Amino acid sequence: MTASANERFSGVFTALVTPFSSGGVDFEAFDALVERQIAAGVSGLVPVGTTGEAATLSDEEADQVIRRTVKVAAGRAIVIAGAGSNSTAVAIEKAQRAKAAGADGLLVVTPYYNKPTQAGLVGHYQAVCGATDLPVMLYSVPGRCGVEIAASTCARLRETCPNVVAIKEAGGSVARVTEIRRACGADFPIHSGDDGLTLPFLASGAVGVTSVVSNVAPAEMVAMVSAWQRGDWTNALSLHDELSELFDALFIEANPGPAKAALAIAGLASPELRAPMAQMEPDNLARLSGVLSRFRANPVFQEIR
């Protein structure tokens, strides 16, 4: 029996960081990170998105990262590659390159900087979706892009683009889940794009999260979402409460700076970033380090690990 869209997009999808070493992609560290995600039970992997510093990757590097994700995952998790741009023509090219690299689907963010109208968004997504047969997850993140996908626009795209199959909603409002469900139907998968809102999103009808925090705490994020899905709401809320300090600390500066710093503290990857991103401010790094120490010592998570 073919899985429904809600089933295919259910659970934790990790927005993967791209580890660097001496300016290049550190594929050894990347492979280990992907394996760690799969061992923790994540449902999906999202390479070359915002968290993966896609804006500073060359086309060749992006292709390599997607191919590596597909190879290491080996069918054990769905691979949804970032393919967004503020140029429709470039977004089409990225979509086609991601398919050639073996991605199972695409995460397509709204055009940034341009601030198109809703009509412009419709035209953009229709053009991208018309150029590929891969499933497309819309990505609305107005804090970075300056424009939000209206619920009515989401519904129009679902009606006119058969391969629009889900949305990552990162506008910081739980009310958006209800708005999108009303417009698109309860069978249209919604992901939280904000880790701290994962549980409220699930309670409102979302089916999963595209997570930054799961780079650092994949098993714990999976445990929280899984608890909710099996109806163990008390445990889900307890895990949410225990993770809340980590949610805050990993966004104390712009993503993915804190996530990479946390992975470095854990000895899993270098904190190296590409300009214009810079290393964390010392006070913020100290705060993050303290949160990680408490997190690793937390007895609530001992059995999960």
Results as ranks from 00 to 15, higher is better:
Thr117Val: 04
Asp187Thr: 11
Leu263Cys: 06
Pro189Trp: 11
Pro200Ile: 00
Ser140Gly: 04
Pro19His: 00
Leu121Tyr: 00
Thr14Phe: 03
Val25Ile: 03
Pro258Glu: 12
Ala275Lys: 08
Val165Trp: 06
Arg36Asn: 14
Gly231Asn: 06
Leu268Asn: 09
Ala217Met: 09
Ala83Tyr: 03
Asp241Trp: 12
Ser244Leu: 07
Val165Tyr: 07
Leu57Met: 01
Ala81Ser: 14
Asp187Lys: 09
Ala254Arg: 12
Val291Arg: 01
Gly82Glu: 08
His124Thr: 08
Ala236Asn: 11
Arg296Tyr: 02
Ser244Cys: 06
Ala278Tyr: 09
Ile304Lys: 08
Pro299Asp: 08
Ala100Asp: 10
Asp232Lys: 05
Leu45Asp: 01
Cys184Trp: 03
Thr2Met: 14
Ala278Glu: 14
Ile66Leu: 07
Gly23Arg: 05
Ala39Asp: 14
Ala81Ile: 05
Ala262Ile: 01
Val48Gly: 08
Thr210Trp: 08
Pro47Asp: 01
Val65Ser: 00
Ser204Asn: 09
Ala155Lys: 09
Gly231Met: 11
Gly185Lys: 02
Ala39Gly: 12
Pro189Met: 05
Arg76Val: 05
Ile180Tyr: 04
Ser192Gln: 02
Val70Ser: 01
Asp194Arg: 11
Gly123Tyr: 05
Thr153Cys: 13
Ile167Lys: 12
Asp248Glu: 13
Asn114Arg: 07
Ala236Met: 14
Arg36Cys: 11
Leu157Pro: 03
Arg158Gln: 14
Leu45His: 05
Phe9Glu: 03
Ile252Trp: 00
Val291Ile: 00
Asp26Ile: 06
Leu263Met: 10
Gln96Trp: 05
Ala150Gln: 14
Pro111Gly: 02
Phe251Met: 12
Pro142Tyr: 02
Glu303Gln: 13
Leu202Glu: 06
Ile149Asp: 03
Ala55Ser: 14
Pro189Phe: 09
Gly82Trp: 07
Val109Ala: 05
Ala217Glu: 01
Ile149Arg: 10
Val141Pro: 06
Ile66Lys: 01
Ala77Val: 00
Gly196Ser: 11
Leu250Gln: 07
Cys154Met: 11
Leu285Ser: 10
Arg296Cys: 00
Arg156Val: 08
Val209Ile: 12
Asp248Gln: 10
Val122Ile: 15
Leu197Trp: 00
Thr50Val: 12
Lys99Ile: 13
Thr69Ser: 07
Leu268Cys: 12
Leu246Tyr: 08
Gly143Asp: 03
Asp31Thr: 14
Val109Pro: 06
Ser10Phe: 04
Gly290Tyr: 02
Asn6Lys: 15
Ser22Tyr: 08
Pro135His: 11
Pro200Gln: 03
Asp248Cys: 10
Asn235Val: 15
Gly11Gln: 07
Asn114His: 00
Asp31Tyr: 06
Ala131Gly: 07
Gly11Ile: 03
Arg305Gly: 12
Ile252Ala: 14
Arg156Asn: 09
Ile92Phe: 11
Ser87Ile: 11
Ala223Lys: 08
Ala150Thr: 04
Leu250Glu: 01
Ser214Ala: 15
Glu169Met: 10
Thr160Val: 13
Leu16Ile: 03
Val48Pro: 01
Glu179Ile: 09
Met277Glu: 10
Thr69Asp: 06
Pro258Gly: 13
Gly171Cys: 02
Thr110Asn: 05
Phe188Val: 00
Glu53Pro: 07
Asp31Pro: 06
Lys168Glu: 08
Ile80Gly: 01
Val108Gln: 13
Phe295Trp: 02
Leu134Ser: 15
Gly44Pro: 03
Ser87Cys: 14
Trp233Cys: 15
Ser87Met: 12
Ala249Ser: 04
Val213Trp: 09
Gln302Glu: 15
Gly75Met: 04
Gly44Ser: 04
Pro276Leu: 09
